[in-house]
Amino acid sequence: MNEMTFRTKLLTHPQILDAEMIKYLEDYPEQKSLVQGARAFDQTISDVLDVEVPEGLHARILLNQSYQQNLETSSENVEQVDKNVMGVDNVTVLEPSVSSDDKTGWMDNALFGSWKMGLAASVMGVAILLGVWQNTQQLTPLSGEATIDHIIAHIEHDPSLMTAVKLPNSEQELQQLFANVGAQLSKPVEGMSYAGMCDVEGQQGLHIVMQEQGQPVTIIVMPGQQVEAMHAFQKSGYQGEIMPVKGGVVAIVANTMEQVALAQIRFFKAVKFA
């Protein structure tokens, strides 16, 4: 091996010395400084490549994923509702003479004959579709900045809620709270310290406080409102996100984006909007 080949190999892979290169260094020990120089330069390159990563990047990625997951779940739910409705209608159309002895239906066939069952199912199907249609029709678009101001003012109006431990006495009452805003609780929301109804922009909303990393995070669910897409905000020392859910809007407000992300993951793991 000559010097040219040695240098070429060194610049190609400064961290690797193959047998030929080692042999060359044994023959020309003064060239060891070349290796040191090449490795020092590589370390400088490595340091330079190691640019600073924006704060909260991980949290924002997880937040986005959590939101994506929530959307997937919501669309699956919608598909499921559609399938159920279609299924009921199919029974109505294709099997109009269901046996009156069949007691597995959601209502007693002794009260509702087969044709009445069919009619009821059809009415129910139409009602569900109408409900979904009305929900989408009645959503009021939110005015970004003003809504954020209102939410922050609302949070600051009663700071005692941040530290209060006040939850409904029974699971039934808790479920009712969530049902009021079109949501369903599939399991307890981890870290929830407060849950109650509140008034946001003249409308009844659900006010939740969760304790995340020892800090309070406020979640406001506003049914009947609408935003086009999830967006983050930073105002008055708070960080937050406003995001669309089925039939309304959810706002999450905390001191840091990481707390927002963690609270959102926990919230949507437990709460479904249908």
Binding site: L49, D50, V51, V53, P54, L57, H58, I61, L62
Partner: peptide
């Protein structure tokens, strides 16, 4: 995310 987000950003 924890393992690769930073280097992917870079």
């Amino acid at each position: 995310v924890s393992a690769y987000a930073n280097d992917l950003y870079r």
